[in-house]
């Protein structure tokens, strides 16, 4: 059974159909890329996969369970985590605290026990501290652990977001344009990070415009255009698919590798 099974997915905003009748399956433990021109509906797809938008039609099954109709925090609990195309940092916190928020689902204390600082809180604090550090180190961020988030460069923040998502120990990680806005070195680091994440057994769903990166890390690729499925397959198949070439070359010059 596929990890993620999307069927007949449709959503429209007013008159605009952002995703039309889309279907695809993401196998376990793979890097699965979703590509398409600007405005194709990739972020909208992610928003539905994570419970932020409710599709008009269709189903999204994750490990056999329906995602549609659940709120984002419930989807997160099922084991889906994500990063955002527009950074969604907690700028009012330190890097460490940002990532500690990622441990939310692995810890269980309540407002009331926290208020009284019952003994279990201390243990839990130490535990999430350790988990958060681990995630930060995994993403190569040990130098920034105690910095406030609002004082960091963009490229670092992108990785903090990933560390935060990883701290939740997801089964599926949705990454929305992780390399956007990064310079060449940072892009290479990002590629390695994605590979490392994938090696730990976490499945990755990747939206990315940098085709070089996509071709290097992906096991399979789904191409969408105007919200519809254009092609799906192995990277080599996609690269040589005439429809894909036309969609990209006909539209914008994004195929720069």
């Amino acid at each position: 059974m596929a990890l993620l099974d999307v069927k007949d997915l449709t959503i429209s905003f007013g008159g605009v159909t952002a995703i039309a009748d889309l279907h695809f399956e993401v196998p376990e433990s793979q890097v699965y890329a979703v590509i398409g021109p600007n405005g194709a509906g990739k972020t909208t797809l992610f928003n539905m996969l994570s419970g932020i938008y409710k599709p008009n039609e269709g189903s999204i099954r994750f490990q056999g369970k329906e995602i549609v109709g659940r709120r984002p925090h419930q989807v997160a609990k099922m084991g889906v985590s994500r990063t955002f195309q527009n950074l969604q940092m907690f700028f009012n916190m330190s890097v460490l605290d940002n990532v500690k928020v990622g441990c939310h689902l692995r810890t269980h204390s309540h407002l009331w026990s926290a208020a009284l600082r019952l003994p279990n809180i201390l243990k839990e604090e130490r535990q999430s501290q350790a988990w958060a550090r681990e995630a930060l180190i995994f993403c190569g961020l040990e130098a920034y652990i105690d910095q406030p988030a609002d004082a960091l460069p963009y490229g670092v923040l992108k990785r903090v977001e990933i560390a935060r998502a990883l701290a939740a120990q997801p089964k599926l990680l949705l990454m929305d344009e992780p390399a956007a806005g990064l310079n060449d070195t940072e892009t290479v680091e990002m590629r390695e990070l994605i590979r490392r994440i994938s090696k730990t057994g976490i499945s990755v769903l990747l939206v990315e415009h940098n085709m070089g990166l996509v071709m290097q890390v992906s096991d399979r690729i789904l191409v969408i255009d105007y919200g519809s499925r254009l092609a799906e397959g192995l990277p080599e198949e996609i690269q040589n698919n005439p429809k894909v070439i036309e969609a990209y070359l006909g539209g914008e010059v994004q195929y720069a590798v």
């Binding site: 709120r71 925090h73 997160a76 940092m89 907690f90 928020v101 407002l111 926290a114 935060r164 998502a165």
Partner: peptide, 29 residues
């Protein structure tokens, strides 16, 4: 002070920082 420096406190600050991100980290905002 206890609350702020705990799981629940971070949830509070998180939903202030970004409500979607907080939800996505499993916080029932």
């Amino acid at each position: 002070l206890n609350i702020i420096d705990s799981r629940s406190g971070r949830a509070l600050r998180g939903l202030h920082g970004s409500e979607v991100a907080a939800e996505m980290m499993g916080i029932d905002t």
